[in-house]
């Protein structure tokens, strides 16, 4: 996966970049499966490899297919990236080991949801139970965000076409 990401950095052909990002998403979906997150892997594979790639290709068709090399030196971004990375890695030093059952993340609400789902919700899929019931407000908010983003795209792309056509009509009649 790191290799794919690095290849994205080097590539100039945007078509190849988009394809590589699709591969990247599929690999990450596999990683989610190995980390027991089947629902997440499912979504990632459907969304990342399907919708995102189609949308990016659509954008490429509307814009250009090659990247122009930039004249700026990469030193300052590299410096920023290394400092941020070092700070984040320093931050992980205090974190519990990977898969530690006594980690703080496992002992509070997570364990509570697992223990209470059979009695209160009585559904086998805990992810659905938490998503729709215990965290119903969150999901309502997320749906509202998706809704707003959809409206935004429609306003940006399809609404304007109508206005332009009207403008042209006005010009034609004037």
């Amino acid at each position: 996966m790191v290799l794919t990401a690095l290849a994205v950095v080097r590539m100039r052909s945007l078509f190849a970049v988009v394809m590589l990002s699709g591969i990247f998403t599929l690999l990450s979906a596999l990683l989610f499966v190995t980390m027991d997150a089947v629902d997440v892997a499912f979504t990632e594979a459907a969304v990342g490899a399907g919708i995102t790639t189609v949308l990016m290709l659509g954008t490429l068709a509307l814009t250009s297919r090659h990247e122009r090399p930039t004249a700026r030196s990469p030193l300052i971004p590299l410096f920023v990236v290394f400092v941020t990375g070092a700070a984040l890695i320093y931050g992980t030093m205090d974190m519990p080991n990977f898969g530690d059952p006594t980690a703080p993340a496992q002992t509070h609400v997570g364990a509570d949801y697992i223990a209470r789902t059979p009695e209160e919700i009585d559904l086998p899929n805990m992810v659905t139970a938490v998503l729709a019931s215990y965290r119903g407000y969150d999901t309502l908010g997320e749906v509202a965000v998706v809704f707003t983003a959809g409206i935004g795209v429609l306003l940006l792309i399809s609404g304007l076409r109508r206005r332009r056509r009207k403008d042209e009509d006005n010009e034609g009649s004037a």
Partner: peptide, 17 residues
Amino acid sequence: NPLPHVLILTAIVVGVA
């Protein structure tokens, strides 16, 4: 832990939007 799964599941779809 199902909680991170739920958070990320919704985040992916919001991310694509």
